[in-house]
Write a protein that binds this DNA or RNA. Sequence first.
DNA 1: TTGAAAGCGTTACCAC
DNA 2: GTGGTAACGCTTTCAA
Lengths: 348, 348
Amino acid sequence: MRPTLQTVADAVGVSRSTVSNAYGRPDQLSPELREKILEAARRIGYAGPNPTARSLRRGRAGAIGVLFTPTLSYAFTDPYAVEFLRGLAETAENHRTGLLLVPLGADDEGALSAVREASVDGFCVYCVPGWYRAMSAALARGLPMVNSEYQGELYVGIDEAAATRAVGEHLTTLGHRRFAVIGTYIGTDPETGPTTVGAPEDLPSYVSRERLRGYRDAFAAAGVPWPDVMTVNAATNTREDGAAAAAYALDRDPHPTALVATTDVLALGALDALRERGLRAGADVSVTGFDDVPAAAGAGLTTVRQPAYERGRIAGELLLDPPDDPARRRVTLDTELVVRPSTGPAPV
Amino acid sequence: MRPTLQTVADAVGVSRSTVSNAYGRPDQLSPELREKILEAARRIGYAGPNPTARSLRRGRAGAIGVLFTPTLSYAFTDPYAVEFLRGLAETAENHRTGLLLVPLGADDEGALSAVREASVDGFCVYCVPGWYRAMSAALARGLPMVNSEYQGELYVGIDEAAATRAVGEHLTTLGHRRFAVIGTYIGTDPETGPTTVGAPEDLPSYVSRERLRGYRDAFAAAGVPWPDVMTVNAATNTREDGAAAAAYALDRDPHPTALVATTDVLALGALDALRERGLRAGADVSVTGFDDVPAAAGAGLTTVRQPAYERGRIAGELLLDPPDDPARRRVTLDTELVVRPSTGPAPV
DNA sequence: TTGAAAGCGTTACCAC
DNA sequence: GTGGTAACGCTTTCAA
């Protein structure tokens, strides 16, 4: 049987409380006794108080739960997500708090129970669509929760629509008038392919909705009504699906002169699709992304820089050390349009 | 006060056990009663059994602890580590198990308590030097532990020395005879700069030790004794420190014709240093790395490909579903020398 | 099908 | 400085 506090207490001939104090409140007993207890523990093979029992008793788990878009492993394929996590991890570490990556899995029921079974003091929700039931389950736990997408009590985000509006204006200024928008969660069915988005406002995913709003407004300002804009859904936020979605757009006749993707990963895929067809980015077709992931610079991709690391860091801060002033619990960070060679004047 | 099982039991007029069954063993009570209980819970605002209490009672935490090289956030800056984590996350998810990233922090004492306070069912230790006390603390917990570096009961790794021997032979075959080895944890002091490694066998870090052994053996076979090989320590596994270490080597006269780094990240930094000096990689100076991270291909870096994702996946498998056959609990994966333009014949 | 009782391993409070 | 006692919130026999 594994040793417990009691085992050690018996061995030394003191009470449980004293052993407990030896670990948690060294000032409550004499250094000699403490050393004697620790020594006995070592001899017996007692590795210290059981963390779960301690958590239960103390009412604090010592970890915050991280909810990521359905599959956990996906988080690590997305360079933006990795940066976000890095910021979050840093804050957590400073607060001596663990990060529990919650295994949402593919099925809804599993995700629900995973959220309900997570021993955490709060949740950081990232990139989980609002209609996903796991979100409500997390909310129901009644724990602090910071969300980068919805406007909750704790919030850190960017003005998504303003950012994409800037991208759209950049393109219309360059003379573009035929656009294709490539994004995830913008289709009625989850396949990669053309779709019709009546109005961006109706989209269930916050990020897609806001970003599309921005594009639409910019295009409309240049006289291009939304129904004339091609929209292509990407099943997942991967380079492959980005390429497939772009392929669809490029194979129309006439094809769009500008491909605007809602993420860099999709945009990088779009560049792949251009290359395959011998089209020159920025000359034959312009391409834009969003996020400014590390690979974007190398690919010469015009995009929106958003502070991923900062966003993660602040999310952690909000969760672990919320400001007293409610107003400061809602943070909006700045973004910046980064123009690179993937965009250029519309071909005549 | 937060509602508990009892609150719900009282509200419905049943016992705690029945409410517990409603959640954990639906087959133990009538569907009607169950629905009635769940409904009451919803009304009261009870989000389901407290995960910590459940863990305590069941004796299972439902998570595995991940121990990463001192700073947690570092894990996310290292592309190899991210791939490893992705594999681990996938396995964990399949087993409906969480991943607890343990906040080791910078100081030793903090790391110890972090390890002792982690509510987990096992540990996956990655890239934590053996002399780091957190390792012993993890060991002392008496939980299953998989280590990619040391030969424990559960092990998944590669033949590090054989892999670097192949790199060394590649270079000696190309005619190189003046080498500089750049690596982390190879210096007596933790600064970036020249150091003397009497014998690789004496290094405290398993990975560095093994990798240097391989280089030494290959160089020796070509008639270059170890003391003639320049060794430069890199304080951290970052591109910056790789560049700084390479700078030192390149600024000697005569400088080495080949820079062998123990990781790709360091090697990419070395390429930066070459570029700064107007030296051509593969022509003036050859450079090699280790890992084959995504950026290595783009940089034309000769390196050793090792299955990072697979390594993480298997680590998880070993922890969560250990094979009955003890022999199969120790896995060694294959590596492959990938030759790219960063290596070429030694200049005459 | 339901309920009573006995822990799981701790910590906090309050006497001594 | 030390030790009793009572929770923390749950699950699990076992008996009804």
